[in-house]
Write a protein that binds this DNA or RNA. Structure first.
Length: 594
RNA sequence: GGCCCCGUGGUGUAGUUGGUUAACAUGCCUGCCUGUCACGCAGGAGAUCGUCGGUUCAAGUCCGAUCGGGGUCGCCA
């Protein structure tokens, strides 16, 4: 019998196993040497169990046990027995039993690790990332990866059961001009030319629909060379889905079913379907966001009509210039110190607002730097519209529409956090629909696709493409959970003329469109079924399921904010020989490397 | 690219208005200990205070730059 063949999962031993002979394979979590008897907690993937070494054990076993240190790798053969009465450990799953060692083999010794291998670790993340293989020994990290595995298994079973095919798409693909910055891979065979790593398998999955595969899914790595955030890594994993002959109403319920299965199969939470829906417009007007967190109120309230004719030029002027004035009634916020209110002013400035007007409502009356600009009637009308009561603060932003939404949307979230309005344990799933197809990019002076250039306009809005592109709505949808965008998709364009019109709107010349996307346009001429799909960010989903607050904690080997791997030291310089083979020269002067 | 926070024995922290032996806990090493489980007791080793430069009689402490990490705005179809 091999070691593995007779192995027992130590963390699963219970009193029922008392009397059994077992083989433990694992790591020494901690050794407690009492001179005459030695205890050691043995850790494996399944958990911890206490091994006991007595001086009368056969051979040199006890002498070996005296040499044990943290993280030594051991093989222990012994007998499970109930712990002596009074020495049970209630805080350990295996605390009713212990393994009385008969043999001990030290399979490998270990240096003292740079940090403790235990949960609730309080150590610089730099160190964890440098020694990621040790960090991943910690139970909470292992549980996260196990949960992640369970989620992908549920996904695969689900899609298999619904007749989907898991099909791989290439990782070395053509660079495309739209969207995020590409990661480029130089071609050795084609000097001066480059592949891109996929930002998503978008075009390939559409071509699979052209091919008649009908139902596709893939759990696939995607790459975007943009700056990192707590929830953004340069490489991340998507659940990618595409179906033929579908409309939005086919896709959304299917995804709701999947989400319910995932939550039930991991956290055990039951999820009510169908999910709530909100149009993009409503999301912006009420929450100032296209991914609203609907777990709490503090909705944005329109006051433009009430302030258009007042003496307060900031408000009246904004309305006169076609801008907007909206407010938030912060319930019970009147206790906020002046300094904190001023801080909120700086806060909204980061989102482009020029300032934050406020009215504090107290039992004695209003306190506000802007109250003097309003008549008593105007003031009362404002307070009434906002539903303000004594103890509240009314906040206002007046600006261009997008700035008002953005500033108040973020202010709403910030106030929700500060005032502890966000309930724990609530899961608010929400579909956002009717996104605009396009927006205008001021820096590039052209339209850009909000979702991507392959998204179909809504049927009734198709004529608007020619007359008023910005008001065209898309057959696009996002799934939002508690203010986090889990994923999104759309019904795609499947007719060449419409796709060409789209490219024209995006400022691509006929030649550019042909050069960049000619193969897709041509494919559309060979009988392309109507199709659509969706993609979910797997890492973010796992982050929500595990309650982690950053994406690095749900990825086995993540990168830092500067896109580096502290363990392997990637990226790194390469040899002149490698560069020569790829016909590359850099303008970076650096010390010669090996 | 902008703004903010952090960097002191292996680890987590303290270090006052700049002042001479950089403190505490834990870990590590040695010895003792037969029922611990954050075992206990006794002893010991371990730091050029991220790096470079400046101010000063004197810098962990003040100033500047730089490197590394984190958060965020821009960016992320």
């Amino acid at each position: 019998m091999t070691l593995l063949g007779e192995r027992t999962a130590g963390g699963r031993l219970r009193s029922e196993q008392a009397g059994e002979t077992v083989r433990l394979l694992g790591w020494i979590q901690r050794r407690r040497d009492h001179g005459g008897v030695i205890f050691a907690d043995v850790r494996d993937r399944s958990g911890l169990v206490q091994a006991v070494f007595n001086p009368d054990m056969p051979g040199d076993g006890f002498a070996q046990a005296e040499r044990l240190r943290s993280e030594y790798v051991v093989s222990i053969r012994g007998r499970v027995r109930l712990r002596p009465e009074g020495s049970e450990n209630g805080s350990l799953a295996t605390g009713a039993v212990e393994v009385v060692a008969e043999t001990l083999d030290i399979l490998n010794r270990a240096k003292t690790p740079p940090f403790y291998i235990e949960d609730d670790l309080d150590v610089d993340e730099t160190l964890r990332l440098k020694y990621r293989y040790l960090d991943l020994r910690r139970p909470e990290m292992q549980e996260t990866l196990m949960l992640r595995h369970r989620v992908t298994q549920i996904m695969r079973n689900f899609f298999d059961g619904h007749g989907f095919l898991e099909i791989e798409t290439p990782m070395l693909i053509k660079s495309s001009p739209e969207g995020a910055r590409d990661y480029l891979v130089p071609s050795r065979v084609h000097p001066g030319e480059f592949y891109a790593l996929p930002q998503s398998p978008q075009i390939f999955k559409q071509l699979l629909m052209v091919s008649g595969l009908e139902k596709y899914f893939q759990i696939v790595r995607c790459f975007r060379d943009e700056d990192l955030r707590a929830d953004r890594q340069p490489e991340f994993t998507q659940l990618d889905v595409e179906m033929s002959f579908v409309e939005m109403e086919d896709i959304l319920p299917l995804m709701e079913e999947l989400m319910a299965l995932i939550f039930a199969g991991t956290t055990g939470r039951q999820i009510a379907a169908p999910f709530a829906r909100l149009t993009y417009r409503e999301g912006m007007e009420r929450f100032g966001s296209d991914k609203p967190d609907t777990r709490f109120g503090l909705e944005l309230i329109e006051v433009g009509d009430l302030v258009a004719d007042t003496e307060f030029k900031v408000f009246a002027g904004a309305v006169a210039k076609g801008g907007r004035v909206k407010g938030i009634c912060a319930k019970g916020a009147a206790g906020l110190p002046r300094r904190e209110i001023d801080g909120l002013s700086d806060f909204v400035r980061t989102f482009g607002a020029k300032g934050l007007a406020y009215i504090v409502l107290t039992a004695e009356g209003v306190k506000s730097p802007i109250a003097k600009f309003f008549t008593e009637e105007q003031l009362q009308a404002l307070i009434k519209r906002m539903g303000g009561k004594a103890g509240d603060i009314l906040f206002f932003v007046a600006d261009k529409e997008q700035v008002v939404f953005d500033a108040l949307g973020h202010l709403r979230l910030e106030l929700g956090r500060r005032l502890n309005l966000i309930p724990v344990g609530v899961l608010n799933f929400l579909w956002l629909t009717e996104f605009p197809l396009l927006e205008y990019d001021e820096t590039e002076k052209r339209y850009v696709a909000i979702h991507h250039p392959f998204t179909s306009p809504m049927d009734e809005d198709e004529p608007l493409l020619a007359t008023n592109p910005l008001s065209t709505r898309a057959k696009a949808y996002d799934l939002v959970l508690n203010g986090v965008e889990l994923g999104g998709g759309s019904i795609r364009i499947h007719r060449r003329e419409v796709q060409e019109q789209m490219f024209r709107l995006l400022g691509l010349s006929r030649e550019d469109a042909e050069a960049k996307f000619g193969y897709l346009l041509e494919a559309f001429e060979y009988g392309t079924p109507p199709h659509g799909g969706i993609a979910f960010g797997l890492d973010r989903l796992i982050m929500l399921l595990t309650g982690k607050d950053n994406i690095r904690d749900v990825i086995a080997f993540p990168k830092t904010q500067s896109a580096a791997d502290l363990m392997s030291q990637a990226p790194s310089a390469v040899s002149a020989k490698q560069l020569n083979e790829l016909h590359l020269k850099t303008d970076i002067v650096r010390a010669k490397i090996g």
